[in-house]
Design a protein around this nucleic acid. Structure first.
Lengths: 336, 336
DNA sequence: CTGTTAGCGCGTTCAA
DNA sequence: TTGAACGCGCTAACAG
């Protein structure tokens, strides 16, 4: 390994001052064409690379954006990560992705790291665990702009990209009701999180509007896994409180439900109607095809990035109390 | 936004020198206990955060690791990203994830960014596009250690975590042969990449060993999508060269194949045997259940991290020519 | 057009 | 135990 070459090294070799080298490298018009070419040639030949730590230390603009998601290993988030990374690349930003693992503590440490590294901005969807939002106030205090998407801190004044969870769950529930299902259960996450609370409200509102007697919201605070889905469904069937339809907030849980229906020869959609949030690669392959609510990942990514870019460019350009709401889509397939 | 508070600010407020503050913050034993407590209290109260740009500029150790994958939005890679992120977190490192989008050019720019930001190390699986490995030589030159996993640059002397693609594809092919299939096709990626070339060799070797006449390697250089899978399979069926079994390198392509078999009432495993690389959430749900080759993501992540950590800690601790090979698993289900 | 000087925030001398 | 001075690599302001 050769030692890293700096502008001073170049200056010494070329018998000019390092500030001239600096100017030449940044194509400052005030530098002699010949000198500039000399510098650029030398830099290229010796593979000079700017030390961004030094640049950023001086306070010059920074092109690094941090993205925090609860779980990269989840198609909704990995889609968004993938799309955001591409958007950022096109616009000359670099995205670093951080994973909170649904843990408040990790999220908090990530925020510290972001502050310490002086990121230009942050795009974040919070952990299920996160009830305290002090760490985002800290971000505010350090002047680092941020945008929430999907799961948000409602008590923080920052732009938010939300999904119409209330409406879509209401529609989904009503759709099941119209199909004749009368005992509809709703499996969802902790209602401390806006996403799950809105879905919960949508479900309840539809049930009440149609004056159904059966009302069964099942709140799952553990990690959404297929195994857990199996257990929840088994318990439901074994109870005296069996539903004839389910709306499920997680594709993982839904897979567990499907597994159990097969094992128990429960027929979909005859014995059980089913609508799930989230889509998977195999959605066209699984039989019967499962009706699903699909979120507009592309739109979420685009909007979030656009908002953050505005904030980075001009912190006052945005009315940050105006949330953006994007529409998810209810796709009726064969399961209801 | 308040201006960022620095050690000098603290020093001024406390009427001591900033070097004392620096020492106090790092628990240097040479500082008076009373002074230290004063500093720590002040720092905490005013939410002091180290400016890592300054620290790194001075050349002190850095705890940021970069991870480069072709595509985050792909279960093999997102699993590894997720696991590595957790491992790193436990060990006090921070992982930034970059996505090359299977493009050499993007990969190259990512490497530049990594150098400019002075990352402590890199874990990387290369793009399908990458044939030139000069950018990794650059990384070497700048003294940034790196570890390859899965898809590697074979002409670079750096630790590699590989999967036994040759053996497992050989076994899979032989398994199909033993089951009586005689016209086995192999759908895979560009043979410039070690992964696909090894699989290709495994397939060919098995075919030749059993002296089968039918030999049909189908090399796909475009992006692996379900749509492409549909097209490839349709073309195969329409040709005079129809296989009675397929080994497929991509779960996306496999989904397309499955879709077409249903449409055309081709029965699995009777009319067509099928083994796919990769696993999906729905593997227990799809009927018939598809036999698959599953890669040990956890082991890959752990080994890669361990190797990189050693390199970061002591660049000479490793015999870097010794590749690690992990074993994938052939899981026979109902499709062959 | 180019050189000088200063300073970003921090940690490490060396000296007291 | 503390302070003073220096420099990491870079850019900006100023002077020439």
């Amino acid at each position: 390994m050769n030692k890293r070459i700096t502008i001073k090294d170049i200056a010494r070799e070329l018998n000019i001052h390092h500030s001239t080298v600096s100017r030449a490298l940044r194509n400052d018009p005030r530098v002699n064409e010949k000198t500039r070419d000399l510098v650029l040639a030398f830099a290229q030949e010796h593979e000079y690379q700017t030390n961004l730590n030094a640049v950023q230390l001086r306070g010059t603009a920074n092109n690094a954006i941090a993205l925090i998601v609860p779980n990269i290993n989840h198609s909704f988030f990995s889609d968004i990560v993938s799309k955001l990374t591409n958007l950022a690349y096109e616009k000359g930003y670099v995205i670093s992705v951080f994973q909170s693992n649904e843990k408040y503590l990790q999220e908090k440490e990530i925020i510290n790291t972001i502050i310490q590294h002086n990121f230009a901005g942050v795009i974040v969807s919070i952990a299920k665990d996160t009830v305290n939002s002090d760490h985002f106030r800290l971000l505010e205090k350090f002047g680092i702009p941020f945008v929430f998407f999907d799961r948000v801190c409602e008590d923080i004044n920052s732009p938010k990209v939300l999904v119409n969870n209330f409406e879509i769950t209401f529609s989904a529930t009503e759709h099941l009701i119209n199909k004749g299902y009368k005992r509809i259960a709703h499996i969802t996450g902790a209602t401390e999180i806006n996403v799950f609370r809105d879905r919960h409200r949508g479900y309840i509102t539809a049930i009440q509007k149609h004056e159904l007697e059966y009302k069964n919201p099942i709140v799952v605070t553990d990690e959404f896994t297929m195994e857990l889905g199996k257990k929840i469904f088994s318990d439901l069937v074994d109870s005296q409180n069996t539903p004839d339809a389910i709306i499920c907030s997680s594709i993982h849980l839904t897979m567990g439900i499907l597994f159990e229906t097969r094992k128990r020869a429960i027929s979909i959609p005859t014995d059980l109607g089913l609508i799930t949030f989230g889509n998977i690669l195999a959605s066209e392959i699984i039989q019967p095809q499962i009706s699903s609510i699909e979120q507009p990942e592309t739109e979420i990514a685009e909007l979030s990035f656009e908002l953050l870019e505005k904030l980075i460019t001009d912190k006052n350009s945005l009315n940050i109390n105006e949330d953006k709401v994007v529409k998810s889509q209810l796709i009726i397939r064969e399961s209801c």
